[in-house]
């Protein structure tokens, strides 16, 4: 008569969110940026993003199948059937979780629209292979893989990575766009001392990378991420706030520094990468402040006109340290009840 009931550790409720949902949120948030980039730079921008995402996915699939399934069983490859079965049923193959596409897409957003089409392919391969899977896959990487790919491309082919062109004019004038070369607003400010109108910088009608020119599109995507709770406000607010304050101190235009270059994309999409940023609230705020200081130092005193990429990469290497410093430490066996601290005080 009596049947045993299932006994397991509570809780028995979940809010149903998985890591895949976090990745999907980033796709949706990238949608306005992708649309803006296609509007300003033509279908070539779409091609760059598509190639970046596709290569990232295929690289991750190849690496996981080779190391998780195919390792030591090349005979399976010949007979095929167990190979396919192993590939489908292996729980370690996490390529379906979509994190590779996020990496490839974010990498493509940081490339200039004039790059040759093999460069997003190479960049995505480096980002996934050497930025992510060398460290052990999702959740174990130290540096943001998309920025690793961009840093590699910038170091290897600096000429192609710093050639810009003005936005496509869809209506009206018939000038040939390919011949004209232009500078990003930050480079123009640094090299020639020219300032770009703030409205152009805001809506993206200026030279720059595929995804970073239109600050409005980035803010739209970021609003969705903040609403969904995929990212928290700590890093973007402290990052942008530090840049703003430092721009005032160093005598620049704070609004121009906020909206020009890749700062918006970096603050909302790159620095908030969950794997490589600290987990504690104070750690996140310190991370954002550090990234802001480094960005402004590179922008004002460094050789590059833009410093977001390297600032975030340097702060990524510090995030385990920030976690360790800012996490709560207690004495051996000490018990604290912070929940009731306010109640007990008064």
């Amino acid at each position: 008569m009596e049947k045993p009931y299932i006994v397991s550790s509570p809780p028995y409720m979940r809010n149903g969110e998985t890591a895949h949902c976090l990745m999907f949120d980033v796709y949706i948030a990238c949608l306005p940026i992708a649309l803006a980039s296609v509007y300003f730079f033509g279908l070539r921008a779409f091609l760059i993003m598509f190639l970046g995402a596709l290569t990232a996915k295929m690289t991750e699939a190849a690496i996981q199948i080779f190391f998780k399934v195919g390792r030591g069983s090349f005979r399976d490859l010949l007979t095929m059937r167990p190979f396919f079965y192993n590939t489908i049923s292996n729980e370690e193959i996490t390529v379906v979780d979509g994190s590779a596409v996020v990496t490839g897409l974010l990498l493509a957003l940081t490339l200039p629209p004039t790059v040759p089409l093999w460069m997003p392919v190479v960049g995505s391969f480096v980002a996934i292979a050497f930025g992510k899977h060398v460290f052990g896959g999702l959740g174990h990487n130290i540096f943001n893989p998309a920025l690793v790919g961009r840093a590699f491309l910038l170091a290897a082919w600096p000429g192609a990575m710093t050639t810009w062109r003005p936005p496509v004019t869809w209506f009206g004038s018939a000038e040939t766009v390919d011949a004209v070369s232009t500078a990003t607003p930050l480079a123009a400010l640094k090299m020639q001392g020219q300032t770009t109108p703030l409205l152009d910088v805001l809506i993206g009608n200026c030279g720059g990378c595929v995804g970073e020119t239109s600050a409005i599109a980035v803010l739209l995507g970021a609003a969705y991420l903040l609403y969904k709770g995929t990212i928290s406000w700590h890093i973007p607010v402290s990052y942008l706030g530090t840049v703003c304050v430092l721009a005032l101190v160093l005598g620049g235009d704070p609004l121009f520094h906020l909206f020009a270059g890749g700062l918006m994309l970096g603050a909302f999409f790159m620095a908030t990468d969950v794997v490589t940023s600290p987990v504690t609230c104070l750690g996140r705020i310190l991370f954002g402040c550090g990234a802001g200081i480094l960005t402004m130092i590179i922008r004002q005193f460094g050789g590059y006109p833009e410093g977001v990429c390297y600032a975030i990469l340097i702060m990524n290497s510090l995030s385990p340290l920030l976690d360790r410093v800012t996490a709560k430490h207690v004495k051996q066996n000490e018990i604290q009840v912070p929940l009731l601290k306010r109640v007990g005080k008064s």
Binding site: L138, G139, H140, V274, V275, T276, V279, T280, C281
Partner: peptide, 10 residues
Amino acid sequence: CACVRCGKCV
């Protein structure tokens, strides 16, 4: 799956 360090638990 592996912890993605999203910090929601914190």
